[in-house]
Design a protein around this nucleic acid. Sequence first.
DNA 1: CCCGAGATTGACT
DNA 2: GTCAATCTCGGGA
Length: 174
Amino acid sequence: MDGVGGRIVETEAYHHEDPASHSFSGRTARNAAMFGPVAHAYVYRSYGIHWCLNFVCGEDPGNAVLIRALEPTAGLEAMAARRGLVDPRGLCSGPGKLCQALGVTRAQDGLALDRAPFAISPGAAAGVAVGPRIGITKGVETPWRFGEAGSRFLSRPLPQSAGKRPPSARTPRP
DNA sequence: CCCGAGATTGACT
DNA sequence: GTCAATCTCGGGA
């Protein structure tokens, strides 16, 4: 869209049987796109302020992947103008930020991902780390957050893969 | 019908 | 660290 874009470096999965998913309680006006065809966008309003972009996918209706962060690669100037911020690391490092930078709103809800204004192409990640999802209170035990290991463009750091840290590396509070 | 919580962010103490 | 902004939905009156 407007030549802006980047590499997807962080996602979270939501399943229709997952209590953290918007589709868990069935279809509503907001989440209708989740029950539509796969490879379409689901865009919803978050906290009444931000937009969040999902890709509808999977075998059953009501499954989607939340796009949480991009590594900006195109249209940096346009994204910086929309975000009112210059630092590339702050442009798309969060689901709400990325939608503001790309100009994604309800206008894109339900649109197909294989044609304009979207342009998705496959790519390879250096390494994928897994961790618990962010900001949810239900389904916290399901570690369905995925990100490129070591990327500087994540919304938050991911757990170290194959971590071999000492169990209690934290300094105890006096 | 009314109220509280939420897949967030940024400004402020 | 704490907190407000403000749309959508689910549950209770």
